[in-house]
């Protein structure tokens, strides 16, 4: 099996969605200064993981499903969710994707196959396996994309689920976005494989499934690696663990503070905790969005002018999302009691 590389049109599609995720996240971050108090609680941004997210979901077909974590803004954008409704949800407004009941950590868009997001590390992994059992019963070659971070791979839910998924040959692709940090703890401080110089994908070996590591900053590499896992799953071959190495370009989340303290995004933990400014600056130099732009311009897929035009379109789209969301009303108070039970 070999995966066909994406054609020029598809490469532009990938680049456009990478831009959309980046621009959306930039606006979430900016909201803290431009509209203080509008975002409450804790948000987690996907900047730095765009290539991994879009490269993976470039294989998504109607009937497939995706499940993710609290760092969940990127996926629905790629699957077709309305950024206006997403931003309104993050602002807790009536027009929110989840009617203001879920917020940043729980974006869900079932119509587009984005089935659910758990805010508890690792807890969503078995949910993806359950959705994959449903896909297996339907028997139409549909698959489930299960996104989680490196930290989740130390949870029992991860190990229990990989065992069952392999045993039952469930059509699920476990995409571990390894960003090197579990909140403010480096992977080497909390992972025996990492501490011994092994890739985290090696954990798949314990469950008799393929485990592969890919450069998550290269969407074409991700497309190829995930593509093989998807083909295997669609054909009934069972799950694959893909370790996608990314660098999150923002801190784990905005600061945690009681009401009254203005929230903001601090610098990355590499700087604030470990004093490794050079590590962070190197990551910025490898930023997947300009890197893929350069690749496309160099290969002639996209002209610099066209790339700038796309960027301007996306910027406008995301500005509109902010201006829509900030004007959206709060939900009616009684709606807090809706949807407790089906």
């Amino acid at each position: 099996m070999s995966v066909q590389p994406p054609n020029a049109e598809r490469q532009i599609w990938i680049f456009t969605h990478m831009l959309r995720v980046r621009e959306f996240e930039e606006r979430v971050k900016r909201t803290f200064t431009e509209h203080p108090g509008v975002i409450r609680g804790h948000t987690h941004l996907a900047d730095g993981a765009e290539a991994s997210i879009v490269g993976t979901l470039s294989h998504f077909r109607a009937g497939d499903a995706a499940l993710a974590t609290y760092r969940c803004h990127g996926y629905p954008l790629v699957l077709g969710s309305d950024p206006k409704a997403m931003m309104a949800e993050i602002y807790g407004r009536a027009d929110g994707l989840c009617k203001g009941l879920g917020g940043s950590m729980h974006l869900t868009d079932v119509k587009r196959g984005f089935l659910g997001t758990s805010g508890i590390v690792g807890a969503g992994i078995p949910h993806a396996a359950g959705a994959a059992w449903a896909a297996q019963i339907r028997g139409k070659g549909e698959v489930v994309f299960c996104f989680f971070g490196d930290g989740a791979s130390k949870q029992g839910a991860f190990h229990e689920t990989l065992n069952i998924a392999s045993l039952w040959k469930l059509p699920v692709i476990f995409v571990m976005e390894n960003n090197g940090y579990n909140v403010v703890t480096t992977t080497a401080q909390e992972d025996a494989n990492a501490a011994n110089g092994e890739p985290l994908a090696i954990k798949a070996k314990a469950y008799a499934m393929p485990g592969v590591t890919v450069d998550g900053a290269d969407p074409l590499a991700v497309h190829a690696t995930v593509g093989a896992a998807v083909e295997r799953a669609r054909a009934g071959g069972g799950p694959t663990l893909v370790e996608s190495k990314v660098y999150r370009l923002s801190a784990h989340g905005n600061i945690i503070a009681p009401p009254g303290v203005p929230l903001h995004y601090p610098e990355h933990e590499a700087i604030t905790v470990f004093g490794k400014r050079e590590e962070y600056e190197a990551a910025l130099r490898g930023d997947p969005v300009p890197r893929f732009r350069a690749t496309l311009v160099k290969s002639g897929v996209l002209s610099g002018a066209k790339a700038d035009e796309l960027a301007a379109q996306v910027a406008k789209e995301m500005d509109t999302a902010v201006s829509f969301a900030v004007k959206s009303p709060f939900p009616k108070l009684e709606s807090a009691l809706d949807n407790v039970y089906a």
């Binding site: 659910g116 078995p126 949910h127 396996a129 359950g130 839910a157 229990e160 689920t161 065992n163 069952i164």
Partner: peptide, 18 residues
């Protein structure tokens, strides 16, 4: 299933959502 209550119940949740 194996003795894996978290996965058993979690799988039930995902299957139910699907």
């Amino acid at each position: 299933t194996p003795i894996s209550e978290t996965a058993e119940i979690g799988i039930a949740i995902g299957a139910a959502m699907a």
